[in-house]
Design a protein around this nucleic acid. Structure first.
Length: 81
DNA sequence: CATGAGCGC
């Protein structure tokens, strides 16, 4: 299941994001979206978890919670066109 | 170079 994570701290990295979600289950991939122009983080990313149950749990447990100093928004990601 | 809702190349 794909998970959308927004309002991340700009200094938050893929490793931190993955490690944060691994507390609820295995994470196949975690990716922060970086802006190609500035090279800085766009402040949001995506996490993919094989186990749907763990994914849903992670969403409900991490949404609207503080992570790396910022209150993040965790939701189910939309299908990429 | 900078910043704060959103959906990725």
């Amino acid at each position: 299941m794909n998970i959308f994570v927004a309002k991340l701290n700009f200094k938050t990295t893929n490793e931190q994001l993955q490690a944060h979600f691994e507390a609820f289950g295995e994470v196949s991939s975690a990716k922060i979206i970086f802006d190609k122009e500035t090279g800085r983080s766009k402040g949001f990313g995506f996490v993919e978890m094989p186990d749907d149950a763990a994914a849903k749990e992670a969403i409900s447990q991490l949404n609207e919670t503080e992570f790396d100093g910022r209150t993040i928004a965790v939701k189910v990601a939309n299908p990429r066109s």
